[in-house]
Design a protein around this nucleic acid. Structure first.
Lengths: 251, 251
DNA sequence: TCAACTTTGTGCAAGCGTTCACAAGCGGTA
DNA sequence: TACCGCTTGTGAACGCTTGCACAAAGTTGA
């Protein structure tokens, strides 16, 4: 690790990304990035409560991870803690925000204004975290022009021009599964490089496009697996004539 | 791996889980479980298209993974393929369903009937995949009694009794963040052991409860990180005076 | 100034998960 | 029956992630 530390970078809040930071960001494990986002949320809550300093132990507890992992995660973005004291909450927030690229606004387009699309368009969590919803699309002519959550719905055929105009950088697909791949292709050809996919379909995209998927049925099935596994384990213990809590139960 | 294969299990479709299967299920990696759910979805589509047999290569392509990983994943649940031929689609479907515990119905309760809760209550993807929505809860008296998606909303105070009556096994939290932990505690004390959490909060639960979280803001931030990383890489290349496509650009 | 105490940052080893590569096994064909 | 081609199933190597344990570095108090 050739991580020679910069001399001064620690103190000054740098809105730009110097070469040093660039190099670090490249090598942060995917899993760590996801956790950094969680730390950021927790830290934002701390700021609201006027907490100025926090130790790795406390932050780890609040984020649901162990402290060693937390410190390692933070070390990927630099050394911004003070030994014997902990981390300055605001400093940490600003560094995580920079690493996650939250210093720029990322306009979002939601495609498919059904139940889920409506919910997403009205969801306050996006704008408040720097992801303004800038465009809505649907294939239904009856919907186009009608505003949802304050934003008028455009027809899906206008994706290319509207996305370009409003500098959309993230596309959210909330269409039925049959339409998802076609919508995805249009978003990609409109220059959108990041896609959040709620449709239960595996999207095919070029290498330069990043897709993350949220599949509710898959989440349910994973939970179902755990229920089944537990039931089976209990059954397995019953075979031995002993229940989970040591109580003997008849087979 | 003490995986002596049963003699007969392969042919007969066993609705019960024999000791052999139980042992396997215990040791399936979490990541593999998530992919099995995806394979199942793809395979279900194959059944609809009257495809009877599929090779690991084809299925892997459709599921967006490489074929070695797919075969290893399937090997966790047993050896149900035919060398030189591939997998029988229906056989595979039934085995994955059994491993994921989908032979039982899992009733779902949605708590928090706001935008997202409405969308979830009306989402057709749940019932069609064996997860009937059996109960809805909210704290707002104006909502209780009003049916949403065909199911009447109950008051949150009645969680314990209603969940017990309707044998709810999965709880979905779609409340504002402030309410999430309290709702979670109530679900747990009502005996719910699986929770899908949409609130941007880290839930604290006992060891015997399984939580999966879907945090839209976190997903967005991960995408944002990748945008930023790409932009920085591009900038890094510009520093060398050469653009991404080999075109020289002035610094 | 110095010693005691606290907490960070990180080398290292163990554990998982992924990928490779190939033997084993099956169907088709002569 | 014997051979050939194809595809599965899996041991083994590899790489990423996690967790431990401790030196380094800061603060506090005398």
């Amino acid at each position: 690790m050739a991580g020679r530390r910069g001399e001064g970078d620690e103190v000054v809040t740098t809105p730009e990304a110097p070469a040093d930071v660039r190099e670090r960001a490249r090598s942060i494990p995917e899993a760590a990035v996801a956790r950094l986002a969680v730390y950021l949320r927790v830290l934002s809550g701390m700021v609201d409560q006027q907490v100025t300093t926090i130790s790795s132990e406390e932050l780890a507890g609040a984020a649901g991870v162990n402290s060693a992992k937390l410190r390692k995660d933070l070390s990927y973005i630099g050394s911004y803690g003070t030994r014997g004291v902990g981390y300055d909450v605001e400093v940490l927030v600003s560094h995580i925000e920079r690493i996650l690229g939250l210093t720029r606004k990322h306009s979002v387009a939601v495609v498919g204004i059904g139940n889920l699309g409506h919910a997403l368009a009205n969801y306050g969590g996006f704008p408040s975290r720097g992801f303004p919803v800038a465009a809505l699309f649907d294939i239904d002519d009856d919907l186009t022009g009608v505003p949802v959550g304050g934003i008028p719905v455009d027809h899906i055929d206008d994706i290319t021009t509207v996305c370009a105009e409003r500098e959309v950088s993230i596309g959210v697909i909330a269409t039925p599964p049959q339409a998802a791949q076609a919508v995805c292709d249009r978003l990609v050809s409109a220059g959108v490089q990041c896609i959040l996919n709620f449709a239960p379909v595996v999207l095919q995209v070029p290498d330069n496009v990043e897709v993350r998927k949220v599949d509710l049925a898959v989440e349910m099935q994973i939970l179902s697996f755990h229920v089944a596994r537990r039931a089976d384990e209990a059954a397995g213990e019953l075979v031995n004539g002993v229940g989970v809590d040591g109580v003997v139960i008849r087979p």
